[in-house]
Design a protein around this nucleic acid. Structure first.
Lengths: 146, 146
DNA sequence: TTTGATGTAACAATTGACATTACAACAATA
DNA sequence: TATTGTTGTAATGTCAATTGTTACATCAAA
């Protein structure tokens, strides 16, 4: 199974807001055009980002603004905000092993610790990247394009 | 989204084979009893483990045997064998960003490298654990139980 | 030949992701 | 104040993947 595209879409959204905010009013329609999906998909993700305190969305008039500097928002913050994976539950367990079997009644406990370490390793790596990393590399690329 | 329970089921299977192989003939029915699922689910996973060369399954007579020492099988080997996640594709991308948008046509490339690093961090951690770690902790637990 | 396994196809049930339509609520402005 | 363009959200549809189930051919040993 894969981690929801809400995560990569959210990263796309932040990049667009940063790149275009001085030229255009960045609305859910505008974003949907760049991402090529439905505006409602965007609005749902915006609602999650707003709820996590990463952005504010102007109702009525439209437009998105950041509530923190890009350098203060890590990939992990975004990942968590869009609930790409429910907290602490990257791995799916078979839920009802047989309690009468010595292995069955102990396996979950034994695996939990190790699999949590695996998940934590991934999340730590996500914390290493910030949206300003993304921004600087994107502007570099765009400069080359012209 | 979560990583398929095939992975934790496979770990459960290995533990059962190790713990019970001298007492019982470990069949898909036996395993299904401990894991509390359908024997066919077990057989499908066994087929994947066999295909990866981690076990051999005796057709006709029944029973499972390992083709390597437990210490030579890492969690990653199992994870890969059951195709818990298609190779290199932990993160789901929105597949058709707009090529006419400067951000749209560059975002995928920019993210690929970073998200691959995240995935690799997770996989490296999976390589740190072997089935013999699991075995020794399980026997420890079972000794305490008696 | 019988017995108890595995291998596998076919299909059903469930779940979650993603897409789409529709419309109320809202804020600026003409 | 009426209009306009936007957000928020409910309702519904579609699709794919996971997991579960039944059925049965194939197989190896006793």
């Amino acid at each position: 199974m894969q981690i929801s595209s809400r995560f990569t879409i959210a990263l796309h959204i932040f990049t667009c807001v940063d790149v275009f905010q001085n030229q255009y009013k960045v609305t859910s329609d505008f974003l949907a055009g760049s991402i090529r999906t439905n505006p409602v998909i965007i609005r749902k993700i915006l609602a999650q980002l707003k709820h996590a305190g990463l952005i504010s969305v102007a109702r009525g008039t439209g437009g998105i603004s950041l509530t923190r500097a890009l350098s203060e928002i890590s990939f992990y913050d975004v990942y968590e905000a869009v609930e790409a994976v429910e907290a602490g539950k990257l791995f799916h367990f078979h839920e009802s092993p047989n309690p009468e079997c010595p292995v069955g009644r102990n396996i979950h406990r034994l695996l939990d610790e190790k699999l949590l370490a695996v998940q934590t390793a991934m999340e730590q790596e996500l914390r290493r990247y910030t949206l300003s990393d993304l921004r600087s590399e994107m502007t570099e690329l765009l400069d080359q394009e012209c």
